[in-house]
Every structure is written in C-alpha cells, then in structure tokens.
C-alpha cells in the first residue's frame, strides 16, 4: 500500500524563482532565504519520495476568469512550465503520475469532493518555486509530481475546514492505492503577505509563528479559523495558507493523537513582499 511519509510546507514567491534563475542566490539579500533550505535539500536527497502531491494555487496562468475551479487535480503525464509574462522559467518539465492521480481523483470524488479533472495544463511559479527551493537546479526533478491547484484568488474560496478535510480524504486515497509508493504532500503559498493597495507589504510575524505552532500541534482547531482572520492578520494574499491545511490534513498525527516529527522549521522576512515560512513534518 502507498503511504504518506512526510509533508513539506513552503512559501512560493516568484522572486525566489527569479533569484535562482538569474544566479543571484549568493547575494546577501537572498543568501538568508536560501540558507533556510540547505537542510531541506539534503533532507529531500535522503528522503526522495516516489511521488510528490503538490498543493498550490494558480496565479492567473492555467485558469482565467472564464473558468475558475475550486480544486483541480493534474492527471496528465507531464506539465510544461508556463510563460507567466516573463517567459517560461528555465526549469525541467514536471512529470506527472497519472495512475496515482486518477486513483486519488476517483477516491476523493467518491468522498464528496468535487474536483475538476485536468488532463492538460501549464504550471506556474506556485508549483515550480517550491520544487526549486527543495531541489535546487537539477536537470530533472527527482520524482513525479501531481499538481493540485486550489482557488485562493477569486472569492468565494474554500474554507480552512474544507481544505483540512480534503487532506484527510487524500490520505485515505493514497493509503488505498495498491502499490508500495512513498508519497510526500507539499502545501505551498503564504505566509503573511499583501501585494495590493496601500496596505501592500504587510507582514505579521506573530501570526505566522502562531500559525506554525498550531499547524504542528493542533491543526483541527486551526482549520476553524475563518477567512477574515487570514485576510486581516496575514494580508490579502495570506489566505494562501489554507493550502497548508490540505497537506497537514493528510498527515497521520491528527488521527492517532501522535504529533508528527518536526524535521525542520524556518522563518525569514522578507523575500520580496513575503514572509517566508517553511516546515518539514515526518510521519512517525
């Protein structure tokens, strides 16, 4: 049987991708950001999974306002890095895992989650920047990736509770897959940031760190936090943090009351407009 071995949480700032792609990682400004991922790169080399289930949000790339899905699962064999307006990032093509993706879609839709099934799409920085942070600049990504896009752009967006329960359904789906795959689930986006209006640049360290504490220790309670608290406390784009609850919901700790092991925790302000948060949790 397949199982979820670990979950990874990280911000997905486009400027981080640009810094990597333009060879600026050695600059003092960026060195501090990338230092937080040195451990993670080594960890991922030692703990390379068979598949990564990567939860992210599309930033007006694959989905236009013509059609916005709440949850979309990528079932294709590969996904091209998108041209978001700067030209495509010079990163490897993302290989999918159609069999596991289709299995998860089947199971999760049976569990009353109304996914949009995607057989073709381009993936933007929301997906490729976390891969770059965790893998550096390889010729090919270390394993297949199942992209899972969440609408956090056009309201109404799904609630934290809905996301957390979705994570649980994903765990159940993975565990019912009849091959011994090691699967990691990544939740990306956040932490506090606001990109728009006179409040642009908002950062809330206290909120972010409390969020990390509660995500580790009591995610079911954290999942009850209403949207307005994210927006007010963590900025209009801080709402992306609901995606971390999907990854956390897929971990076992919540069920057997055994908290997952914190392999790594990192927090840094700023990368561009954003507070960078990063966690690695292992199922014990």
């Amino acid at each position: 049987m397949a199982r979820i071995t670990a979950s990874v949480y990280t911000s997905h700032v486009p400027a981080i991708g640009a810094a990597l792609d333009l060879g600026k990682t050695g600059e003092p400004y960026w060195r501090k950001v990338f230092a937080g991922y040195e451990f993670s790169k080594a960890w991922l080399r030692d703990n390379t999974p068979d598949v990564i289930f990567l939860v992210y949000n599309d930033h007006a790339t694959a989905f236009s306002l013509e059609m916005i899905p709440t949850f979309a699962i990528g079932c294709a064999a590969e996904f091209q890095p998108a041209d978001e307006g700067w030209g495509p990032r010079p990163v490897p093509v993302v290989k999918g895992h159609p069999e596991l993706a289709a299995h998860i879609a089947q199971s999760v839709i049976q569990d009353d989650f109304d996914l949009c099934i995607v057989n073709k799409m381009a993936v933007d920085h929301g997906l490729t920047v976390p891969l770059s942070l965790m893998c550096g600049q390889p010729q090919a990504w270390p394993c297949p990736v199942i992209p899972f896009a969440v609408n956090v752009v056009q309201y109404p967006v799904p609630s934290g509770r809905r996301c957390f329960n979705l994570g649980r359904a994903i765990r159940k789906a993975v565990e019912s897959y009849d091959r011994p795959l090691k699967v990691q689930i990544w939740g990306t986006g956040g932490m506090s940031h606001q990109l728009q209006g006179p409040r642009a640049g908002l950062i809330n360290r206290e909120f972010d760190n409390t969020f990390l504490d509660r995500l580790i220790a009591d995610p079911a309670d954290l999942a009850n936090m209403p949207h307005i608290d994210y927006v007010r406390e963590a900025g209009s784009e801080g709402i992306e943090l609901v995606m971390w609850l999907i990854a956390r919901g897929a971990m076992s700790g919540e069920f057997d009351k055994r908290a997952p092991r914190v392999a790594h925790r990192f927090y840094h302000v700023p990368a561009s407009n954003t507070a960078v948060g990063h966690l690695i949790l292992e199922n014990t």
Binding site: C75, P98, A101, A102, Q106, I117, S176, Y177, D178
Partner: peptide
C-alpha cells in the same frame, strides 16, 4: 493500480486511463 474496475460486456468506461 489499486483500482477495481467494473467489467460490463460491450461497454467501455471513459475513465482517466481511457481519457489520457
């Protein structure tokens, strides 16, 4: 693949495998 597929004679279920 861990998926149980129903077999109905003369019938193809248009699932993810077929769609791809």
């Amino acid at each position: 693949t861990g998926r149980q597929k129903r077999v109905i004679p003369g019938t193809t279920i248009f699932d993810g495998d077929v769609a791809r």
